[in-house]
Simulated assay, not measured.
Amino acid sequence: MESLDHATTDQVLTPPPLRPGDKIRFVSPASPPDRDRVLRHAEILRGWGLRVDFGEHAFHKHHYLAGTDEERLADLDAALRDPEVRAIFTTGGGKGSYRIADRLDFAAVRRDPKFLIGFSDITTLHLSLLRHGRVIGIHGAFFAGPGEEGVSAETVSALHGALMTTEDIVIQSRPEEPTAALTTSGRVTGRLIGGHLETLTAAAGWALPNLSGTILLLEANGRYRGQVDRQMTMLRKARHLDGLAGVAIGQFTDFEFDLRFSVIDILREHLNVLGVPVLGGLPLGHGRSPVSALIGAVAELDAETGTLTIGRGSI
Rank of each mutant, 00 (worst) to 15 (best):
S262W: 03
L274R: 01
I249G: 05
T68C: 05
F143R: 10
P283G: 00
G47D: 00
H63I: 13
H196I: 04
H139Y: 14
G205E: 07
G47K: 00
Y64N: 15
R72M: 06
P29W: 01
L216D: 03
F252Y: 07
L127S: 05
P15N: 07
F26H: 05
Q227G: 13
M164Y: 05
R288F: 07
G145S: 02
R111N: 10
M164K: 03
L200G: 08
L129S: 08
N272Y: 14
G92D: 04
G243F: 08
H240Q: 12
P113N: 06
E256H: 15
K23I: 12
V247M: 01
L159C: 05
R288H: 11
L217A: 00
A107G: 07
R134G: 06
G96Q: 10
T233F: 10
P277N: 02
R187G: 04
P33H: 07
T189V: 12
R81T: 11
T123N: 01
K237G: 12
Q11L: 15
I315V: 15
L218Q: 01
A204E: 10
A74R: 11
P290Q: 02
D5Y: 04
A108K: 02
A58W: 04
L294S: 04
E167C: 12
D254H: 14
P290S: 03
L125W: 08
I138L: 12
G285H: 02
L50C: 02
A248S: 01
P20F: 02
W206T: 13
R46E: 12
P20I: 03
T166L: 13
G118E: 06
E219N: 15
G222I: 10
E300D: 05
L294A: 11
A107P: 04
T184L: 00
A293R: 00
R110A: 13
G213P: 03
R110F: 10
G311P: 03
Q172N: 12
I310W: 00
G96D: 06
E154W: 05
G194E: 01
G205A: 06
D82A: 09
Y98P: 13
F106N: 01
L216P: 05
T155N: 00
I169F: 03
M1C: 11
G140E: 05
D53E: 06
D22G: 04
T183E: 02
F115R: 04
I100N: 08
F119W: 11
G92Y: 07
R134K: 12
Q251D: 01
E256Q: 15
R110N: 06
H160T: 10
L13R: 14
T9K: 14
L13M: 14
E304K: 05
L216F: 10
L282S: 00
A107S: 08
V298C: 11
S31R: 04
R312V: 09
F59K: 06
V52T: 03
A87R: 07
T189A: 13
F119A: 09
T199V: 15
G161A: 14
I310R: 01
R111M: 10
G93L: 03
L244E: 02
R110Q: 11
S28A: 13
I88N: 11
R239A: 12
R51C: 08
M164V: 08
E43L: 05
E219Q: 13
I100Y: 08
V263W: 04
L130T: 07
T91H: 09
R288V: 08
A79F: 06
N210M: 12
S28K: 09
H286C: 12
S262K: 04
G94S: 06
K95G: 13
F54M: 05
G205C: 06
V247S: 01
L241F: 09
G194K: 00
